[in-house]
């Protein structure tokens, strides 16, 4: 199992330290390019005007919401099947990030919806299923910390993540299955993207930037989890090996 080469925390730490500056730098670069292209270079939409620029944050954030949940589900499956120790930590480190991206997608969508649809919120299939996804993230985070034994919390959360994964295809295809207010997909289509390249490039740059930012956060958070675990182990070792405290003179 080649995956187990990375089960060694020391090897993971060395790899993470080497990757961190690169992912950080590239994330800043991609998001910077995406923002400049999206906010200044890309033309305003002929119908939506300038408010189409919200899309350069909204669409990548919504993609990330699904992508991070998929990552959590895969990590949970790996941890349940192969008991891979880092998969647990990856799932734990991912869910707050995914919840933040989902929240960002909901908020930016709402801000865009007010001028365009005339309402902050509609209960259509896409919006409702993303809201459910947000609650699934919150449940995942709550279950993770609900037990005295952190290992039990991580395993329970892994089962929940796999159960909740049924929602991901529902979100992806909700705009095709139900005739809703939310527009259908215009980038990931079988007949090629239906949006103009001037708008596609900033979108893709932002999407790559968001992904790299997620990888960056994931590496940092897994690292800190490992350091915390090591500190706890050191603390326990110090407690058991320390000499009994001298009796205090009355």
């Amino acid at each position: 199992m080649p995956l187990h080469r990375f089960a060694n925390p020391g090897r993971f730490m060395r790899l993470a330290d080497r990757l961190l500056p690169w992912t950080g730098g590239l994330a800043v670069l991609a998001i910077g390019i995406g923002l400049v292209l999206g906010l200044f270079v890309a033309p305003p939409d002929y119908q939506q005007g300038e408010s189409v620029r919200i899309m350069y944050v909204h669409v990548p954030a919504a993609w990330m919401a699904l992508f991070v949940y998929t990552c959590i589900a895969v990590a949970s499956a790996v941890s349940l099947i192969w008991r891979h120790p880092l998969a647990d930590l990856a799932a734990k480190a991912s869910s707050p990030v995914g919840a933040a991206f989902t929240f960002l997608a909901l908020v930016t969508g709402s801000l865009w919806g007010k001028p365009m649809w005339g309402t902050w919120w509609v209960w259509d299939a896409r919006l409702t299923s993303v809201l459910v996804l947000f609650f699934l993230y919150l449940g995942h985070m709550a279950l993770m910390t609900a037990f005295e034994d952190p290992a039990r919390g991580r395993k329970a959360a892994a089962v929940l993540a796999l159960v909740g994964f049924v929602n991901v295809p529902i979100i992806k295809f909700s705009v095709d299955w139900w005739n809703t207010l939310h527009q259908p997909s215009s980038v990931l289509r079988l007949d090629g993207p239906s949006i103009h390249p001037d708008m596609l490039w900033p979108l893709l740059a932002m999407a790559v930037g968001f992904k790299l930012y997620y990888v960056l956060l994931l590496l940092i958070r897994i690292k800190s989890e490992l350091i915390e675990a090591r500190l706890r182990a050191l603390g326990r070792a110090a407690m058991t090996s320390a000499p009994a405290p001298a009796p205090v003179a009355q």
Partner: peptide, 8 residues
């Protein structure tokens, strides 16, 4: 916790 996990 149960409602948070089950209701969605």
């Amino acid at each position: 916790l149960v409602p948070l996990l089950v209701l969605p």
